[in-house]
């Protein structure tokens, strides 16, 4: 039983951090489809950073800086150049996937996977069978709770939500919706750096090309499934991870009877189902439409 929980937390934690990044952007009125790109930048920088600097803290700092810079770039393209947020987000994903491959090629001279000598610090023997998990796993519930407080129980959160839902209302109480979106994307950049680092350096300590494998989009689906509510979306992400872990378990048990690829596809099937279900449950009414009205009235 414990090993299933460890497996779920291992695969769920990166997803939940990235989901939180999607939640905060969604509330501010941006459909962030750049999550996948931000996550791979975080994953790549963490491992390459550890290899090059020999320090986890330094590697994390670089990962956060790069993810924040990429998020600011996304904000600039959407807000200042008035690009379509969906296209801009997909562009950022392309930039992340391509840019990391290019960087690895430039630094190491090959596209092979990069292995780091150590990863994110572990919890240690004091946690018994969970000691193999990283400190980011322990911090994850606190991060989700902090996001809930920030978004749902502070004036900052209310103004952020107003910037997404009714920008003119935000403007008429003196808030600047564009700056609120910048703040949302910067917070999201930090969270994506942590999520990406956890994915690559949480247990495996390996970076491989395109290793996010659509997890950024799955996080985005969790945002929609959870109606951009921090706790609801975190549970949606956790649900996808549970399905994934069960899929791996099922491979061991029924690997002969059921096609292997079908079981691997389970989390993605669950994602599609989840998005369909959330649409049904809410009867077409959305908590945050995500398309901030750029026009005043």
């Amino acid at each position: 039983m414990n090993d299933i929980i460890v497996a779920i937390l291992r695969s769920g934690t990166p997803l939940i951090y990235v989901t939180m990044a999607g939640v905060v952007a969604q509330r501010a009125g941006i459909w962030n489809l750049g999550l996948e790109g931000l996550m791979i930048i975080g994953a790549c920088t963490a491992i390459v950073g550890i290899v090059l600097t020999g320090s986890f803290a330094l590697a994390m700092l670089i990962a956060i800086i790069l993810c924040v810079l990429a998020s600011v770039l996304l904000w600039f393209v959407i807000e200042k150049l008035k690009a379509n947020p969906i296209i801009a987000g997909l562009g950022l994903t392309g930039l992340g996937l391509g840019g990391t491959s290019l960087a690895v090629q430039a630094i190491f001279g090959s596209q092979a996977a990069v292995t780091a000598p150590f990863g994110v610090p572990k919890l240690g023997p004091a946690f018994g069978p969970f000691g193999v998990l990283s400190i980011f796993v322990l911090a994850m519930p606190f991060a989700v709770f902090a996001m809930w407080v920030l978004l749902r129980r502070t004036r900052f959160g209310l103004r952020l939500a107003a910037s997404g839902e009714h920008p003119f209302a935000a403007r008429s109480v003196g808030a600047n919706p564009s700056r609120m979106r910048l703040a949302a994307l910067i917070i999201g950049g930090v969270l994506c750096a942590i999520g990406g680092a956890e994915l690559a350096a949480g247990s495996l300590q390996i970076y491989a090309q395109n290793m996010t494998a659509g997890r950024g989009f799955m996080a985005f689906a969790a945002v929609i499934f959870g109606a951009a509510h921090p706790i609801g979306s975190a549970f949606a992400a956790l649900f996808f991870s549970v399905v994934g872990a069960l899929g791996i378990r099922a491979q061991l048990l029924f690997g002969d009877a059921v096609p292997h690829d079908l079981l691997l596809a389970l989390p993605y099937i669950a994602t599609v189902f989840g998005v369909w279900l959330s649409g049904k449950l809410r009867g077409g009414r959305k908590a945050a439409t995500g398309f901030a009205e750029l026009r005043d009235y």
Partner: peptide, 18 residues
């Protein structure tokens, strides 16, 4: 405002607070 500037999903108390 003529067309009110209140985010529709907010509760009344939240609309005051923001």
């Amino acid at each position: 405002h003529q067309s009110f500037a209140l985010p529709p999903s907010f509760t009344v108390a939240e609309a005051m607070e923001f």
